[in-house]
Design a protein around this nucleic acid. Structure first.
Lengths: 224, 224
DNA sequence: GACATTTTAAAACGGCAGTTTTAAAATGCT
DNA sequence: AGCATTTTAAAACTGCCGTTTTAAAATGTC
């Protein structure tokens, strides 16, 4: 009956937590089972006893991270907000907060970064459960603002632009450390970045929407 | 005297080429010396004979990639163009072409992706020689458009936004494969993406510039 | 208290992979 | 031709690391 307390203490939980950090640092392949055990303060045999093998442990860690980083109550792609602009801002801030928030552990994002560069077989599931819903939400939002369908090329490109702006703080991490070392991800900064991305993107979307309107009115002129 | 023909043939060159591909696929750690030798069609001992050890080879590959991917004549952060908009478009297209162009080998970018996630000691040099000049060029350009200094926070955020839009096609590679599988990086598509990013960003920059102007005129009103 | 489950300890197994070695053959240079 | 350099071949060395094993101790659980 004392099985589902996801907090601390239990040997399995200590291993999961340690594994999360170690896997996130170096990726699956380079991570050493002995390091994980040392960090968790458990015996070397414990991993095989509880998770079968290293990959079994990794699977658990991934789903643990995807759960703690995904459809949890703290982030939901279906967002409130009356205007489209408010919805965009809510989405952007939510994702930023979710990925870089100070209160949040940084390792799940790092783990994803490794998956992105060198996907394990589990990656497909992660994309479907985590990324696709977000993409779809943003595509629908963008489509509404620029007045095109959700699978229009322009809609997709705009969606790419928005996600690119958000995720570069994860992917460009090591570059930022060197080219903008003063940057810290405080709560203030997160709001500042969210404001910026919203301003930047919404102005762009409105512009693209207007251009599309104008092109519809006098379709004889060259679009380019 | 027959030392500096950077083309093909020579054993060292064949090793470098093969190593580029293998390192780019799996990253430094996971890459196997035996695979590289097999691919290059050379003896196992050849790597140690010519490059000392695996890391020595990697260093050569990196500088080879950075050279073939950096300040070569085909891409230069100091770009032509009369208007700021033309300069932006030239920069964006140049970098896109440089990173994703069909005529270009894809492995240097993949290699960089690995470095970004798990930097080797060589990474600092790469950042200084490749990334910083580009950053500076864009910062200067952005600063001019929005009417702020090059090290202003708004300028930096805008620069992040622009690079985020360009690099997501590399970092989001595996996600794109799954969420937008039809996308191909033909010459046409590259132009389309360059047009999009330029439109998107320039509209945003102008908007931010205007907002800044307005804020300067009546500074009593809250900026937010 | 009896019992199953969990955890520890230390050692060893087994395979993978970077490196080295040795000897021979090929190649290039003057 | 003679010599140094390069390349090959196959085998062995070496360390790392995931995994297993064995036996003992700790921790529940009824």
């Amino acid at each position: 009956m004392a099985e589902h307390n996801h907090s601390r203490d239990g040997t399995e939980d200590r291993i999961l937590d340690a594994a999360g950090h170690v896997f996130a640092e170096t990726g699956f392949q380079a991570a050493k089972v002995r390091d994980i055990c040392a960090r968790a303060g458990v015996n070397l045999a414990a991993i095989n006893y509880h998770f079968g093998d290293k990959l079994g442990l990794y699977r658990e860690v991934l789903s643990y991270a995807a759960c703690a980083a995904g459809n949890a109550a703290d982030f939901n792609p279906v967002l409130p907000g009356r205007t489209a602009r408010e919805k965009l801002r809510a989405f952007v801030f939510g994702l930023l907060q979710h990925m870089y928030g100070e209160d949040r552990p940084a390792w799940p994002v790092r783990l994803m970064t490794h998956e992105l560069v060198q996907p394990t077989p589990e990656f497909d599931g992660v994309v479907e459960r985590l990324m696709r819903p977000r993409q779809d939400a943003v595509r629908a939002l963008v489509a509404g603002v620029i007045g095109r369908s959700a699978d229009d090329r322009a809609t997709r490109l705009c969606t790419q632009s928005i996600f690119g702006q958000i995720t570069i703080y994860a992917h460009g991490r090591e570059v930022l450390k060197r080219l903008w070392p003063e940057l810290r991800f405080t709560a203030e900064t997160l709001n500042e970045i969210a404001d910026h991305i919203t301003d930047f993107s919404y102005a762009a979307l409105e512009h693209i929407g207007r251009r599309h309107e104008a092109a519809k009115r006098k379709p004889k002129a060259a679009t380019r």
